[in-house]
């Protein structure tokens, strides 16, 4: 449990990313309808809502995988009508996925190393010989990746192909891959889905640590209300593609629209 009083003011800075009036439709189906909210530097921002509320679609819009038909996205002061995946990645947005999206044929180490791709730039020529600058670069990044591996306590599965790992560990490796990008904004799509209590506690710890030590801004989608209320600084609630509430966990908890969305309303 985090003390919500003074740390908020010191930790949290300016708006890092803002979405304004974003709408997204697939054919005739509206996934997101005129949603606006912002994410501030250094905060942990939760996006919650019932199934099919458009949470994952929202993350997909933020890192450029879906192209909204309408709206603006401002990231680090630059406004555009849609993000491009590569722009998002090089701008410092990393992401984990609801259904783990690891590179199944590669080892845990290689997966996390792949997260360093953007930071590596030794050219093809040196890569061919794997000597000199290429090897130096490889080692330098290996060192960084090993820190992440230590941090996530997955030393023993370094060389295991991720397809063979249990679900909880896969989620951890995926977090590691995202961290390897040294992101400014980390999007976590249900980081604790399908985990038992112990694993959830571990994962919560990692999320708080990442936020605290690396100062990474985090936006997460989560269904476990206890986790959301404990971890997050502010919560935005979506329902049927529309924003129905936005505020601190306590405010949201008391919001009538939110209670209705979750428990249903008598018609």
């Amino acid at each position: 449990m985090r003390a919500p009083d003074d740390s908020l003011k010191t930790r949290i800075g300016d708006v890092l990313l803002a979405v304004e009036d974003v709408s997204l439709a697939f054919g005739g189906v509206k996934a997101i309808n005129g949603v606006s909210f912002d994410i501030r530097q250094g905060e942990i921002r939760a996006i919650i809502g019932p199934n099919g509320a458009g949470k994952t679609s929202m993350l997909n819009v933020i890192n450029g995988f879906y192209h909204p038909q309408q709206g603006r996205i401002t990231f680090k002061g630059k406004t555009r009508s849609r993000m491009r995946p590569h722009e998002a990645a090089s701008g410092g947005i990393a992401r984990t996925f609801q259904n783990v999206a690891l590179f199944r044929g590669m080892s845990a180490l290689d997966n996390i190393m792949a997260g360093r791709t953007l930071k590596m730039n030794v050219n093809f020529f040196w890569q061919m010989f794997r000597r000199g600058p290429a090897m130096r670069e490889e080692i330098e990044h290996r060192r960084f990746v090993e820190e992440i591996i230590d941090f996530l306590k997955i030393q023993d599965i370094r060389r295991t192909p991720v397809g063979r790992l249990p679900y909880g560990l896969q989620k951890r490796v995926e977090l590691g891959r995202a961290l390897a990008m040294e992101p400014e904004l980390l999007l976590l799509d249900e980081p604790m889905a399908g985990m038992n209590l112990e694993e959830k506690e571990d994962m919560s710890r990692y999320i708080l640590d990442v936020n605290e030590y690396y100062g990474t801004t985090i936006a997460l989608i989560e269904h476990d209300m206890g986790v959301v209320m404990d971890l997050s600084d502010r919560v935005v609630v979506l329902d049927h593609g529309e924003k129905i509430a936005d505020g601190t966990p306590d405010e949201v908890k008391r919001n009538q629209a939110v209670i209705d969305a979750y428990l249903g309303v008598a018609h």
């Binding site: 990645a89 992401r95 999206a101 290689d110 190393m113 792949a114 791709t117 890569q127 290429a134």
Partner: peptide
Amino acid sequence: NLVHGRIGRSWMAVRDMDLAAELIGIR
């Protein structure tokens, strides 16, 4: 040498899950 370095990892990332590869910044 190529497949054991950055280039090889990018290739395999594209093979295993091209969308995720794109989102970690692989062109």
